[in-house]
């Protein structure tokens, strides 16, 4: 019981750091996935005096992934009920070309602005409709969401660091006596600190495996998958190798840092 209590305080503090970190990763991935989703549904309309190929558009700005010419037939049909077919053909020739431009990713408002000026500066394009108002609103909403989550993660991190520092003082008090006694009998620094580092590494492993278990469960949960499906995205919640290695690395680094601070702050008393 006493041993469990010894470990619990650091394990809980580490878990909260690992959780906030992984939640931040999930939100990042969700936003990226949502951006891909948005970019698939978002396009810019450009009006050109002359015919332009998809490659010519790509040359104007690299963000353009494809240019599709829009047929003017439906517009002409409404205007030309009483016209002769030769006049209709003539009208077709005088009409500018309309293009729907698909983009490689969901751009920032600044990138939209640049795209617009690049297109208008190319010479042949006379008008660009970028639906910037809608775009900006969605983009700002995404940024706000990301900032809120980052802020939440930072607050959790600060609170946890404060908790860890409190824990550090308790550990310092608890281990100081043992380290002093060992020092009185000539134990080298590594031997005096070995128990502390062992405890720190065990706690880091426990916290990492607990986080692993929870996120593996979440990644296989149908309810969680449904929530992401509802907003039309598919997100990798937990990569059992990459994410676990990051979690393990962070947990071990924090624990070893904590143990090192205790060892460095150790003052021998006799």
């Amino acid at each position: 019981m006493k041993s469990v209590k010894n470990h619990l305080s650091l394990v809980v503090a580490l878990l909260s750091i690992l959780f906030s970190m992984q939640v931040f990763f999930i939100v990042e991935r969700s936003i990226d996935a949502y951006k891909v989703n948005l970019s698939n549904n978002y396009s810019v309309i450009a009006v050109s005096k002359k015919e332009l190929s998809s490659d010519e558009f790509k040359g104007i700005n690299k963000i353009i992934s494809n240019a599709e010419e829009l047929s003017p037939d439906s517009v002409i049909k409404r205007l030309t009920s009483d016209m002769k077919s030769t006049n209709v053909e003539l009208l077709k020739l005088t009409l500018p070309k309309f293009y729907k431009l698909s983009l490689t990713y969901y751009p920032t408002p600044q990138e939209i602005k640049k795209l617009r000026s690049d297109l208008l500066g190319s010479g042949s394009i006379t008008k660009v409709e970028d639906f910037s108002h809608n775009h900006d609103t969605v983009y700002k909403l995404l940024l706000l969401f990301k900032k809120v989550v980052a802020l939440f993660a930072i607050v959790v991190l600060i609170v946890t660091v404060l908790l860890i520092f409190k824990e550090l003082r308790i550990w310092q008090y608890k281990h100081n006596e043992r380290m002093t006694i060992m020092g009185l009998f000539g134990a080298a620094l590594w031997l005096r600190s070995a128990v502390l580092f062992r405890l720190a590494i065990v706690d880091a492993l426990v916290a990492s495996f607990l986080a692993f278990g929870v996120f593996m469960y979440l990644s296989s949960s149908a309810w969680v998958a449904e929530q992401f499906n509802n907003i039309g995205i598919n997100v990798l919640i937990f990569n059992p190798i990459e994410d676990f290695l990051i979690i393990l690395g962070v947990a071990i680094t924090i624990s070893i840092l904590l143990a090192s601070l205790i060892v460095l702050g150790h003052k021998e008393e006799a």
């Binding site: 006493k2 006596e177 043992r178 002093t180 006694i181 060992m182 020092g183 009185l184 009998f185 000539g186």
Partner: peptide, 16 residues
Amino acid sequence: RRHLGIVFQDYKLVKE
């Protein structure tokens, strides 16, 4: 210190 034996009034035993 590895060749000394030290005894204190307050024993200085490791409690845990």
